[in-house]
Computed example of a mutant assay.
Amino acid sequence: MAQQLSFDLPAKPAHGREDFFVSSANAQAVALIDTWESWPARKLVLYGPPGAGKTHLAHVWSAQSGATIIPAGDLVQADIPALARGHVAVEDCETIAGQTPAETALFHLHNLTLAEGHSLLLTAHAAPNHWTLALPDLASRMQGTPAVELDLPDDMLLTAILAKLFDDRQLTPAPDVIPYLVRRIDRSFEAARQVVALLDTAALSRKRALTRPFARDMLDNAGL
């Protein structure tokens, strides 16, 4: 039985391609990232719930293509012509809906990047037709962008996500902890993150090993 205790170390997310577990929930998205040079429109939207792997895949694509990654909210202050000289990944695109300067910046980045012969990856929680963009020309371009959804995790993917989250925090739970959590927690990426953070903090404060009885008690106490 694992006896490793939690230490006060920051989580260090691993964003390499080898760290991304492929299942039926995300296989189509991964295949499109792996074949990005063949995108017919040279652009793609990745969308799905928080923690679905959008940022991870953006980093995978950046490593493959040399792309710059930028949050949509930072576009107003960005040098758009300089960004457009290479491939670009823009994250959380729906968060700028209704913000005219940011929408205008994304519109120009979209046009300049493609005009320069480069590719554009965009991430969001929802498909582009749900972004409620105010700029009609931007809305039409986004809605015309090929999009792929990352689904909520199946058992296999949730198991891999939990294992990765524990590893990011340099924790080693007992072998029966992750199977127990897969059966117990909500089937979402956000729930997996919250539970691992809870167990990390609890194990540190109580100086306890991450066993199934300990995990059960902590989830019961938290009402999860």
Rank of each mutant, 00 (worst) to 15 (best):
Pro10Glu: 08
Ala209Glu: 11
Ala203Met: 08
Phe20Arg: 08
Pro179Asp: 00
Arg85Lys: 14
Thr159Lys: 06
Arg17Ala: 15
Ala102Lys: 07
Asn129Tyr: 11
Phe21Leu: 11
Ser6Thr: 10
Leu152Arg: 03
Ala126Met: 06
Gly53Asn: 01
Pro50Asp: 03
Ala160Met: 06
Gln3Glu: 09
Val182Tyr: 00
Arg169Tyr: 06
Leu204Glu: 12
Pro81Gly: 14
Val195Glu: 04
Ala41Lys: 12
Ser140Phe: 11
Tyr47Glu: 00
Val30Ile: 07
Trp36Met: 05
Gly86Asp: 06
Leu158Asn: 07
Leu112Phe: 02
Val195Asn: 08
Glu116Met: 08
Phe166Ala: 10
Ser62Gly: 15
Asp8Ala: 15
Ala192Phe: 06
Pro213Trp: 13
Asp74Gly: 13
Asp168Thr: 01
Arg193Trp: 04
Phe214His: 13
Lys164Trp: 06
Asp167Pro: 00
Thr68Trp: 05
Pro101Arg: 07
Asp92Met: 11
Ser140His: 07
Gly48Glu: 01
Ala97Ser: 13
Ala63Glu: 13
Val45Tyr: 02
Pro213Arg: 13
Glu18Met: 10
Ser65Val: 05
His15Cys: 02
Pro136Asp: 13
His130Tyr: 14
Gly48Lys: 01
Asp8Val: 02
Arg17Trp: 08
Ala222Ser: 14
Leu224Pro: 09
Ile185Tyr: 09
Arg85Glu: 14
Met218Pro: 01
Ala126Glu: 08
Phe166Lys: 02
Phe189Ser: 01
Ala160Leu: 07
Glu91Val: 09
Arg187Phe: 06
Arg17Gln: 11
Glu94Gln: 15
Ser6His: 05
Ala14His: 04
His56Tyr: 03
Ala147Asp: 06
Asp155Cys: 09
Phe214Thr: 03
Asp8Asn: 14
Ser62Trp: 05
Arg183Ile: 02
Tyr47Val: 04
Asn26Asp: 00
His118Gln: 11
Ser23Ala: 15
Asp34Arg: 03
Leu109Met: 08
Gln170Glu: 02
Asp176Phe: 04
Leu157Trp: 00
Gln143Cys: 15
Thr132Tyr: 10
Ile70Glu: 01
Leu158Cys: 12
Ala160Lys: 05
Pro101Ser: 14
Asp137Arg: 15
Leu112Met: 13
Ala134Phe: 01
Arg212Ile: 07
Val148Asn: 07
Leu158Arg: 12
Gln99Asp: 07
Leu224Glu: 06
Tyr47Ala: 02
Pro49Ala: 14
Val196Ala: 11
Phe107Tyr: 15
Lys43Trp: 00
Val177Ile: 10
Val90Gly: 11
Val22Asp: 06
